[in-house]
């Protein structure tokens, strides 16, 4: 199966997903009681003002026309105007989305960087004390509610020890770097502002740990079980019979093969991280999509909700495309035959 074929199939899938998502969100936004025109016009507006607002928003037109208008705008990158903030939804997303992605990526990085070695150690020392401890950690991770862990960490590292800040992305006295990627860890470095970088880093540690901890348990378990499986394989026996050292066998032969099934899971996990971010962001007052979406929902801000849903779905499909391509890189057989 060629790379091109996979990409092509995924792009077709992407179109279908976007179509499905827009249809569903569009339908829901029109079924839920609540009149956006009235909301926008305010409580004391006269019926005439509401009506003119309705015309201005195109809400007086037949549904299918409204939908086509919406999709047409979408294709031009126009996600509509937020009812709550009054700004174009696209601008809001550009402001808030990177914060969430940054949090998700750091959390994912943490969970993989800690979870893979733990999983490997757990499999290699199966049923010994390392394995017992690791399994305890991973069960704890899977079963701990993120908001509770977050509060606990704030109490300890902010309240008691005062080592790390409890909220926001940057310290109050620090100027935000010029917007390049929206990821503060990168933008501060690009601006050469080490002080701001340190501040951004210290702000992201607790929320990323909180968010990643749940996922850490999943990664550890997955790696452990696929390592156990791979260590039983005939080629591991061949390597052992060839006199290779434990290190060569575990890292040279077993780990790569054990990673292959785990990669698929990472893509799915990233979706979980995006959803999990909502709670974590609330606890840490992280100015990301989680907060934005929650507030938009409270305000019945349909353009914002729909914009977020569409962008999140696209991101999800793209991430899984990256996962599939990584999969092909890891497994030469899929690369050539499929």
């Amino acid at each position: 199966m060629s790379f091109l074929y996979v990409i092509r199939r995924r792009l077709i899938l992407l179109l279908l997903v976007v179509f499905g998502v827009t249809i569903i969100t569009f339908a829901i936004s029109h079924m839920i009681p609540g009149d956006p025109a009235r909301l926008m016009a305010g409580d004391r507006a006269t019926p005439e003002i509401v009506q003119s607002m309705r015309v201005r928003l195109g809400l007086d037109q037949p549904l299918h026309v409204q939908y086509l208008n919406y999709v047409g705008d979408l294709l031009r990158g126009d996600l509509g105007t937020s009812i709550r903030t009054g700004r174009p939804v696209a601008d809001d997303l550009v402001r808030f989305f990177p914060a969430t992605i940054e949090l998700g990526v750091v959390a994912l990085f943490f969970s993989v960087a800690a979870g893979v070695p733990l999983g490997v150690a757990s499999a290699v020392y199966r049923n010994r004390w390392i394995d017992q401890i690791t399994r305890t950690i991973s069960v704890t991770g899977i079963s701990t509610p993120a908001f509770w862990l977050g509060l606990l960490l704030i109490l300890l590292f902010y309240g008691r020890l005062d080592w790390l800040p409890s909220s926001g992305r940057l310290g109050s006295g620090i100027a935000a770097p010029p917007f390049v990627t929206g990821f503060l860890l990168i933008d501060t470095l690009l601006a050469g502002d080490l002080l701001a970088f340190r501040s951004a880093l210290s702000h992201i540690l607790l929320p990323a740990f909180t968010l990643g901890f749940v996922h850490l348990g999943v990664v550890t378990r997955q790696i452990r079980s696929s390592m156990l499986e791979v260590l039983q394989e005939d080629y591991v026996r061949t390597a052992k019979a060839g006199g290779l050292s434990r290190r060569q066998i575990i890292f040279g032969h077993a780990l790569r093969n054990a990673l292959i099934p785990s990669v698929t899971m990472l893509g799915l996990a990233f979706g979980d991280l995006l959803y999990g971010a909502v709670l974590t962001e609330t606890v840490f007052a992280w100015p990301g999509m989680g907060n934005y979406v929650v507030q938009s929902i409270h305000a019945l801000d349909f353009p914002a909700i729909m914009g977020f849903t569409v962008v999140a779905s696209v991101a999800y499909v793209l991430i899984n495309l990256v996962v599939d391509l990584t999969y092909m890189l890891l497994d030469p057989q899929i690369r050539s035959v499929g």
Partner: peptide, 16 residues
């Protein structure tokens, strides 16, 4: 001491 095994299909690392 060298050893060879039964299933050559699985006895080599598939990703190497």
């Amino acid at each position: 001491v060298a050893m060879v095994f039964q299933e050559p299909m699985n006895a080599l690392n598939p990703t190497m």
